[in-house]
Nucleic acid binder design. Structure first.
Length: 498
RNA sequence: GUCCCCAUCGUCUAGCCUGGCCUAGGACACCGCCCUUUCAAGGCGGUAACACGGGUUCAAAUCCCGUUGGGGACGCCA
């Protein structure tokens, strides 16, 4: 009931201020609006709230647009720029003054700051003291004609303010705790609450869905709707996204911008799905869902009232699931840039007939254990280049360790293995596996004592996909070369170790 | 400080509106076992929560009140 849209077609908006990047919190707000619109076949409108000219930048607008596009949160109308409506906003403020619902305020920001600070040291709550409301009209005229800078304040009427929140249910404020809202700054520029209400009316917004941090703005806006003689839209306040310390997610928690997650190798479908699960669930236990499934299941009444901690580990888990589902061609597209910066890229990886098919097979074996796209540049190195280091933990565990009998014993096994592998007719997984196992058996040793050092020789690490898959992907010649390189390394080891 | 919001495993949540099916279900993480070739992946299993106190009721995680705790807002920012 709470969330059911009435007979009017649903019209919602996302209204970011372009003063930085697209924050995941903002993205989630956009997402829920988008989902609500799509679920009800309504319109999703994008409005850029750039009324703070000193902080708004064109670059930030672009970043926000890019972030939304990347997440495929598409808008039906806009982007509209709030700054274009400035004249209309001023007219509204002037009309309110004429109607006696607002008044000029000559208090300087410095004066107000001083009073605020004084109140704070007294431990008292600060609220504008209406100094300028008490001015007689002659005094006001005098100051205005002399050109004393004046802001316009809305005269907050007495009485309770209530609305039925789409998420929280009935919510009430006493107007006694609300100070007279500044509508126009002394330089004549409109402020947030005025602009927001005016534009929402103009755009015929039916549901305002935004973060919990806006709850205290809502009574002010309800007042402005009343003053305009317009029925307010429905309001729904989303719980905040929190950091691990349960405080509002912010930069000090690490990555918070959509772009950072993209650059780190989180897939857009992952972030979309994950953000959706922060404060909402379909109620039937499903977690990994397509956007169509999410859209179909989405309702506002299923939204939680409690803030949700952004769990990076779960995000990466979800991402690993999505990576595993990726088709090889798209995966190759996603990995390409990372390979280029790592200097591992060559055109024949993309050329059918070149190493393309082989490359796709390599990607296929690696993807099951990858959490982020960035993992691939690291894991692909031993396949695309002969230049890679032996990881210290792998050296210690499988080359130097007493378990393998020390470097000399390892060297002997690898020498034998080199010979055995060279004898293999067809260099396939079963054939190489059989050769290795037969060798180990003939020596009365565990296959693992051959496999581990071999892995270090081939990829330089203690972890990898199945060793025989790697072996065949790397091929006989390069395997031999790598075993030789390992032999040299082992020989030098005692000296290196001191 | 004032106002507002919130309260189920460490985390995301199901259940709450319409009390009984809840000795509270799922997922991430963690631990163990299996598979095995190490880690991972996969399979199986385990540890782990109704903040507290009153009340209503035959019966409360679910309804009411209070306490405590947490968060947010208190701008001529949006």
């Amino acid at each position: 009931m709470r969330g059911d849209p009435d007979s009017r077609a649903v019209r919602v908006r996302f209204a970011p201020s372009p003063t930085g990047f697209l924050h995941v919190g903002g993205a989630r707000t956009a997402l829920f609006n988008w989902l609500f619109a799509r679920h009800h076949g309504g319109a999703f409108i994008l409005r850029i709230e750039d009324t703070d000219l000193t902080r708004s930048t064109e670059q930030s607008v672009q970043t926000i647009l890019d972030g939304l596009a990347w997440l495929e949160i598409t808008w039906d109308e806009g982007p509209f720029f709030q700054s274009r409506e400035v004249e209309a906003h001023r007219a509204v403020a002037k009309r309110l003054v004429a109607e006696g619902k607002a008044y000029p305020c000559f208090c300087s920001p410095e004066d107000l700051d001083r009073k605020r600070q004084a109140a704070e040291t007294d431990g008292a709550a600060w609220k504008y003291d209406r100094t300028c409301l008490r001015l007689d009209s002659a005094e006001v005229m005098d100051r205005l004609t002399v050109g004393v800078p004046a802001a316009i304040r809305f005269k907050v009427p007495e009485g309770p303010i209530a609305w039925d929140d789409l998420v929280h249910g009935p919510t009430t404020f006493d107007s006694a705790v609300i100070e007279d809202i500044v509508l126009l700054r002394s330089d004549g520029s409109p402020t947030y609450n005025l602009s927001c209400v005016h534009d929402d009316i103009g755009m015929r917004i039916t549901h305002v869905i935004r973060g919990d941090d806006h709850i205290s703005n809502t009574p002010k806006q309800v007042l402005l709707y009343r003053a305009a003689g317009v029925e307010p839209p429905r309001f729904g306040h989303l719980p905040l996204i929190l950091g691990p310390d349960k405080k509002r997610l912010s930069k000090r928690h690490g990555a918070v911008s959509v772009t950072e997650y993209r650059d780190r190798g989180i897939l857009p479908e992952t972030l979309f799905n994950f953000l959706t699960l922060l404060g909402w669930s379909p109620g039937d236990g499903r977690e990994k869902m397509t956007r169509a499934e999410i859209t179909a299941a989405f309702t506002l009444e299923a939204i939680n009232r409690k803030g949700a901690v952004f769990d990076e580990q779960k995000l990466e888990w979800l991402n690993s699931q999505y990576i595993n589902d990726l088709d090889p061609t798209r995966l190759a597209d996603l990995v390409r840039d990372g390979l280029k910066t790592a200097g591992l890229w060559s055109a024949d990886l993309d050329t059918p007939g070149g190493r393309h098919d082989w490359y796709l097979r390599v990607l296929g074996t690696l993807k099951a254990r990858s959490k982020v796209i960035g993992d691939f540049a690291r894991d692909l190195r031993p396949f695309l280049s002969d230049e890679f280091d032996y990881a210290p933990d792998a050296v210690e565990k499988h080359l130097a360790g007493a378990k393998g009998g020390g470097p000399a014993a390892v060297a002997r096994r690898m020498r034998d293995l080199r010979g055995a592998l060279a004898q293999v007719g067809e260099f396939t997984e079963p054939a190489t596996e059989e050769a290795l196992r037969r060798l180990a058996e003939s020596k009365g040793e565990a296959a693992a004592t051959y496999i581990h050092p071999l892995r270090v020789a081939l990829v330089g690490r203690a972890v990898s996909p199945g060793i025989f898959a790697i072996l065949t992907l790397i091929g006989l010649d390069r395997t031999i070369a790598r075993l030789d390189r390992l032999a040299g390394f082992l020989e030098a080891m005692p000296a290196v170790q001191g």
